[in-house]
Amino acid sequence: MSTQPDLPDSIALFPLPGALLLPRARLPLHIFEPRYLAMLEDCMKTRERLIGLIQPRAVPGGEAARLHAIGCAGRLTAFSETEDGRYMITLTGMSRFRLLSEVEGFAPYRRGQISWDGFERDRGPAERDPGLDRPAFLDLLSRYFTAVDLSTDWSSLKEAEDELLINALSMLCPFPPEERQALLEAPSLQTRRETLVTLMEFALRGRSSATPGERMQ
């Protein structure tokens, strides 16, 4: 049960492989499947306008995908409709949640009974990372971006607040789904930054040990 009266105990679930939403960050999404169009229409009728972004676990045989235990609820903060009935939306991360069980019902999309307990920090002020060595972090980031052929506005990164910097990069970097889940589940901003550093260093070591032909693939 929710410990705060303004947080619902059940929300719509949007299983999206590889997607990552973090508290106070924004994620643009393109909605076009009929079941998720219905989810969006139902979401807009509620006071909270929350959608639970959660990653599915890979399962064989085409059965309904099991879901990870932890996701992040995003508040619908922007949307526009295309001429053919699709939506471009923005979710703003509100808080992580723990999935307790799925709710049976007649909706074409999945819903979950959830708990917000343990994620009170998500609903407070922006976090700081006192252990962040920004020059060393940006140097590693530069080498990683070069290796994976990404570009960015470096002047903006140098001036960004700790949380915006770390969370935006966690969402941007092209890590596999399980590694993105580890970034989501990091208990603090400092832990998330440490996880991010480890993932970038691991990726760089992997690329440096690959043969020239493997790196070109």
Rank of each mutant, 00 (worst) to 15 (best):
R66N: 11
R49T: 03
P176M: 09
E81D: 12
P23V: 00
M1P: 11
D6V: 06
A136F: 12
D139Y: 12
S101A: 07
G74H: 04
R66V: 04
G85C: 08
M200R: 08
I54D: 04
P60Q: 10
S208I: 06
D129F: 02
M216D: 13
R128D: 10
P187K: 05
R143I: 02
Y87D: 00
R121P: 02
N167C: 08
R57Q: 10
L172D: 14
K158Q: 12
R75L: 05
A25V: 01
R205M: 14
I114E: 01
A69T: 09
R134V: 10
G93D: 04
P60R: 09
G206V: 07
L150W: 07
P135D: 12
P108A: 05
L16T: 00
L140H: 12
R123W: 10
S209G: 08
A186G: 05
A12R: 02
R24K: 13
L7H: 04
L22W: 02
L76T: 01
I166C: 04
P135N: 14
S209M: 11
F106G: 14
C72I: 02
L150A: 08
S101D: 07
E178H: 10
H30N: 15
A58D: 11
R111H: 11
T198V: 15
F14C: 01
E185F: 01
V103N: 03
R128C: 10
M216H: 11
Q55M: 07
